[in-house]
């Protein structure tokens, strides 16, 4: 028995001697077309010309992009790239897909990364949020008690920044969709965009209505189970795992439902308008 298996092994080894392997490789290589040295010389010349032309075209293309007129702080072709990406991802978007959630214990206090639009501390008791329709007319104002009257939800999610970092945090508050329902009838259906501003209008974001109506888009007033601090956007801010932090406006002053795509603070400074994750 042992002899047989030994023989067998010997045989497989033998079929792979260096000479046999070399023959096998050579047979494969023999399939490759061959040409005469003079044809090779002609081909070389042609290839160098083609290669040179391709390199020049590449260098020209790179310079061309860099010197294109800017569209909101980036070359217009790259802005177009953002727009194409947006339409691709909007087309591919699967409804009802949520970002992963985590156990509450995985979360911790997040850094304060931006204070634009916050300025001085405000009197939280005097805060009121304006809601406007497409033509800018005032539809209503809200105080915090009205927001707190909406169903309370909590989520522990990964908050993500365009800078690359992420942080697992627990947000508490109302779903924006519950809030928007208060105005759906009055508006005869919700228009395609929402524009949000800080009270001083120093910071502003524009978001598509589909993203706003996602169940993980909160009007948040709690962070880690505590009321928001002013640095984190008290009394009310946006929170979501599905948009970068640049879209998650702190200290909401005005919400406007609008038919026109609203401008956006960081969009004007070269970033993607959609910023969807």
């Amino acid at each position: 028995m042992s002899e047989t298996s030994n023989d067998k092994r010997k045989k497989t080894d033998a079929s792979n001697t260096d000479a046999e392997r070399a023959a096998r490789y050579a047979a494969l290589e023999a399939e490759s077309p061959r040409i005469s040295p003079s044809d090779y010389t002609t081909k070389s010349r042609r290839s160098f010309l083609t290669g040179g032309a391709a390199m020049a075209a590449g260098a020209f293309g790179f310079r061309w992009i860099q010197t294109r007129p800017e569209s909101d702080r980036i070359p217009d072709v790259l802005r177009r790239g953002h727009e194409v990406n947006e339409s691709v991802w909007r087309a591919l978007k699967r409804d009802g897909v949520n970002a992963p959630t985590f156990p509450r214990s995985a979360s911790s206090m997040v850094r304060v990364n931006g204070r634009r639009g916050l300025g001085e501390e405000i009197d939280l008791a005097a805060w009121e949020m304006r809601v406007e329709g497409p033509d800018g007319t005032l539809l209503g104002t809200h105080v915090m008690d009205e927001i707190r009257a909406l169903p309370f939800h909590e989520m522990t999610i990964e908050h993500k920044c365009v800078e690359g970092w992420s942080h697992i945090v627990t947000w508490g508050g109302a779903r924006f969709s519950d809030f928007a329902a208060l105005y759906a009838d009055e508006l005869g259906g919700l228009p395609p965009y929402v524009s949000l501003n800080t009270p001083d209008e120093e910071y502003y974001v524009g978001v598509d209505i589909e993203s706003m109506m996602h169940e993980q888009m909160y009007l948040a007033y709690e962070l880690q189970g505590e009321p928001l601090t002013q640095d984190h956007g008290a009394p009310l801010r946006l929170a979501s795992p599905n948009k970068y932090g640049i879209k998650l406006l702190k200290r909401i002053g005005t919400i406007r439902f609008t038919d026109e795509r609203p401008t956006d603070f960081w969009f004007e400074r070269g970033y993607d308008w959609y910023a969807e994750l």
Binding site: I74, P75, L78, R79, G81, H82, E163, W266
Partner: peptide, 11 residues
């Protein structure tokens, strides 16, 4: 150069 970095990268 983050904004431009993202624009080039995603295109």
């Amino acid at each position: 150069r983050l904004a431009k970095g993202m624009a080039w990268h995603f295109t």
